[in-house]
């Protein structure tokens, strides 16, 4: 019995070495193919956006052109208000990032390093906020903003995103990593809480700032339903809302639509490529959008 098991073990372990090697090779091949397939929609959209309109009509799926051209891009700017949409999206996203980072890091600092009454209740309140699905509440949100007279303004897009429970938890767990001794020492030296926040904690918090900042930027840039309701004039729209209007629009050819789609995703792709590592670590550390 024992010898049988032993010899079987030997056999399998030998087979395993081979098995595990070929398994790894198989995994690599499958995954590379998989990833290449994932890139097809992007690649196809970019290639087609550089082909002239009549060629696309004649042969929509070809990936070659005899006359590569930038026409679709210049037309996209001429036909639509893409320039305005860019400006709106940039302003709204940037301001949202600044507000979110400042407001959420302030309360997170309090929760991480200050001792005060009601802190436990605050934590519960923010934890409960994680469960509130804001996307479901657009209608009452709209009514509220109308009675506040904020419809059609940038504020309507910036304000709702800034009190983010997720951002508070990211900052808080990061700030908790700063040793109490350091903060006590600064207190003894007579530093105010504000100075400790600004001059000690925020500089040490850079990774959390970039994680929260990048995520806020991406989510506000990509927001669709709320800006669709709030910003109704063509020139005040954001990129996603403006682009969605191109679907099935007349007088725009396929290359121009695809060029616009590419223009809409370009800034985000750039942010992603530059900040790849922070984004991936950010997702890993929050676990919640």
């Amino acid at each position: 019995m024992t010898t049988a098991t032993l010899s079987r073990n030997k056999e399998t372990s030998k087979a395993d070495k081979l098995g595990s090697k070929s398994f790894n090779r198989l995994a690599a091949t499958c995954l590379t193919l998989w990833a290449l397939i994932w890139l097809v929609p992007f690649a196809w959209a970019v290639i087609t956006s550089f082909r002239p309109g009549d060629e696309i009509t004649a042969n929509p799926m070809s990936i070659w052109s005899d006359h590569w051209t930038l026409d679709a891009y210049t037309n996209a700017f001429k036909l639509n208000s893409i320039g305005w949409w860019y400006l709106n999206s940039f302003l709204i996203s940037t301001l949202s990032v600044i507000f979110t980072v400042v407001i959420c890091s302030l309360i997170a600092f309090g929760l991480a390093h200050l001792r005060f009454q009601g802190k436990g209740a605050l934590m519960v309140l923010i934890l409960a906020g994680l469960m509130v699905p804001m996307e479901a509440l657009v209608l009452p949100q709209f009514m509220e903003f109308r009675s506040l007279g904020l419809l059609g303004t940038y504020w309507a897009l910036i304000l709702p995103a800034t009190a983010s429970p997720v951002a508070v938890f990211v900052f808080r767990s990061f700030l908790k990593g700063i040793p109490d001794a350091l903060i006590e020492a600064a207190r003894i030296d007579g530093a105010s809480w504000w100075r400790i926040y600004r001059e000690i904690c925020m500089p040490l918090c850079r990774p959390a700032i970039s994680a929260v900042g990048i995520f806020t930027f991406i989510t506000t840039w990509n927001a669709f339903l709320w800006p669709l309701l709030v910003l109704t004039q063509t020139k005040s729209q954001t990129i996603p809302v403006g682009l969605s209007g191109l679907l099935g629009a007349t007088g725009v050819n396929q290359a121009e639509v695809l060029a616009s789609a590419v223009l809409g995703l370009l800034p985000l792709l750039a942010v992603f490529l530059v900040a790849q590592r922070q984004i991936v670590q950010g997702v890993a550390s929050t676990g919640i959008k």
């Binding site: 996603p240 969605s244 679907l247 985000l268 792709l269």
Partner: peptide, 17 residues
């Protein structure tokens, strides 16, 4: 890049493509 890039792209661009 291949797997995560689509996630950062706006829904409207995805739908157009």
């Amino acid at each position: 890049i291949a797997f995560f890039a689509p996630y950062v792209v706006p829904s409207a661009s995805v739908c157009l493509i």
